[in-house]
Write a protein that binds this DNA or RNA. Sequence first.
DNA 1: GTGGAATCATTCGATGATGGAACTAAAGTG
DNA 2: CACTTTAGTTCCATCATCGAATGATTCCAC
Lengths: 158, 158
Amino acid sequence: MTNANRRDMGSAASDDLVRELRIFAGEIERYILQMSHTHSMHRTDLAAIALVMDRETTTPKDISDGLGLSPSATTAMLDRLERAGHVTRERVETDRRSVHVEITDTAIAVGGSMFGILARHMRQVLDTQDDAELARTAALMEQINTATRAASAEAAGA
Amino acid sequence: MTNANRRDMGSAASDDLVRELRIFAGEIERYILQMSHTHSMHRTDLAAIALVMDRETTTPKDISDGLGLSPSATTAMLDRLERAGHVTRERVETDRRSVHVEITDTAIAVGGSMFGILARHMRQVLDTQDDAELARTAALMEQINTATRAASAEAAGA
DNA sequence: GTGGAATCATTCGATGATGGAACTAAAGTG
DNA sequence: CACTTTAGTTCCATCATCGAATGATTCCAC
């Protein structure tokens, strides 16, 4: 295999992976949309719950920045989520202009039931794979997630 | 390494990957939300464009089924997309109750520019990886995408 | 061929998610 | 201390979405 051939193969495999990741983003969005209807939850609400779960500490400003919502839309959404028992809000002691948003066990349970069908289908695929391969893929996805988070931050600043 | 250890490691790697995929779904959702605001496009519109691009042939019913929208919301959205020059609609010759939805070059260009920042960040990660590893990961993602599509179909039927 | 049922996309009117303006409370700065 | 900035909320207008109704088309049993 010459260097020219190696370069072509690298760029093809890389492009393939990017394309599959793009398709995954579309497919899982559609899965979540289906589930949001089944559970009568608006999908922006679900996005906010996912953000609160993925971050260590969350304020309304984190949510409005992260999802690109206006402050007033964020307030209205947190009102909905609080009414539904999915989040709690508490004034931050060190900066009383702000509020700390916490996820509830109710929201975690709803989230878990939402991914039940998907988890079953995914398990069928993953159980046929080599364990060391899965570990390497998980490590790669971790790096890709960091890159995606950096891209979001850059897009938010642009 | 005993069988008991191997079993634990396998389930841990599998769980790690599922978790990273879940995180990826959240992160890329937030990236897309940022971009939808930058480009003044509603996120449901983006989801519809992605669906039309990922499927070979699309009708309003495919879109309303796929995204869980009502037929009337689907019509309103296609009106928006058509006005923006992102899709075209043509009556299907073999069944004149229906409409065939086609993506335009304009939409493809907008989609491309939307993923520019993300593509750059991802390229930095992928360029450090072994090519054969990328190819294996791409193949695994392809299977995961098929499983996700099956899960959406099951969720839609439930 | 005919009548009725089913399918498909659209129109219409009501509901509620979202953004912009205004506001209050709190923190930061010179 | 006075002024500016930050953070979240309230109020009101806009528009995305839903359910009901509609018209056109296709399917199916007789």
